[in-house]
């Protein structure tokens, strides 16, 4: 026994000698990320496979010793099955994808002309124009959503204006529908679209455009056959940057979308806070993560393909 202890102690002191300052430096952020990011993800997967229980914590454990010698592993796939059979969840997935997709396309249609105009503006004011795009992003997210509540609500600015101008008699229902949720998302994430588009468009060599004009191309044709194809990396990056946060968005559909715009984010929230069903909330989160990872991988692939062509 004595020898084993000695070996352990010498081995340990040997190890302590090898560990230098830089190892501690590595250990701190590694440890943080492991404990507060990787562990929660593993716990999420684990709870998504448990059964709902009215207790604290409200889920069953997966591994159990039964009568002292039998190891029982119970994995419940029911939470996932429900998500693909219950109409409410399927409609939730569809709503999320529809809202995120529509907002991404609208952001692209609005962001592209803006990014192009900024890229073609004189170099002196370009910095200021770009900063003006980011400035609203630095104001609180909730305030930006609130601004649209103020504009769109039945007693809000737009309805008031229309009534004053005698264009309508009664206030229009502008808020509490999926269109309002889309407007909110476009407003909140437009800077994410403009920036990658700008950096792609800025790199374009404009002598190409001039050559196209000289050869008799119309401005519109030159734009669509030169600027748009060369801006494709920016289009993919910007679309991913808008689509990814939009699909998991909770605050905007909750405040602007009304009761019937049930996105995945809201379903997770309702399952957790409303139904106290941790396993269902966890499995919904896993599905949401898959929805998020998919466009990122797609955009990454496209970029890599593009780079390999360039090489």
């Amino acid at each position: 026994m004595y020898r084993i202890e000695e070996i352990i102690i010498s081995w340990f002191s040997e190890l302590m000698k090898k560990i230098k300052g830089r190892h501690f430096l590595v250990a701190i952020p590694y440890g943080w990320v492991f404990v507060f990011f990787i562990c929660p993800c593993l716990i999420l997967i684990r709870i998504s496979l448990a059964e709902n229980l009215i207790a604290s914590p409200p889920y069953t454990s997966l591994i159990e010793w039964i009568s002292g010698y039998m190891l029982q592993i119970r994995i419940n796939l029911g939470n996932y099955m429900v998500l693909f059979t219950d109409e409410m969840y399927i409609r939730g997935f569809a709503t999320s994808i529809l809202i995120a997709g529509t907002s991404t396309i609208c952001c692209l249609l609005m962001g592209f002309p803006m990014a192009y105009a900024i890229a073609r503006s004189s170099e002196k004011i370009r910095g200021i124009l770009l900063m003006l795009v980011v400035l609203p992003f630095w104001t609180s997210f909730l305030i930006r959503v609130y601004a649209w509540i103020m504009l769109l609500s039945p007693c809000g600015f737009i309805n008031n204006l229309l009534i004053r101008l005698n264009l309508i008699e009664a206030p229009l229902q502008l808020m509490n529908n999926s269109c309002a949720a889309c407007i909110g998302i476009i407003y909140a994430y437009l800077p994410f679209m403009i920036f990658p588009l700008y950096s792609a468009i800025e790199k374009i060599d404009y002598t190409l455009m001039e050559a196209a004009y000289d050869l008799g191309s119309s401005p519109l044709k030159a734009f669509f056959s030169i600027v748009v194809p060369l801006a494709i990396p920016g289009i993919y990056a910007g679309s991913a940057l808008v689509f990814v946060p939009a699909i998991g968005e909770f605050v905007i559909p909750e405040l602007l979308g009304g009761a019937q715009t049930l996105t995945i984010g809201r379903l997770v929230w309702n399952e957790f806070f409303g139904n106290m069903s941790w396993p269902t909330a966890a499995s919904l989160s896993i599905i949401l993560l898959i929805f998020v990872v998919f466009p990122i991988v797609f955009a990454q692939r496209r970029r890599e393909a593009k780079l390999s062509i360039v090489d």
Binding site: F36, V244, F250, V268, A282, S285, L289, V292, I296
Partner: peptide, 13 residues
């Protein structure tokens, strides 16, 4: 890129 609801939920768990 993590949706806020997922991050909040997993951290709470």
């Amino acid at each position: 890129v993590m949706p806020e609801v997922v991050m909040g939920l997993s951290l709470l768990m």
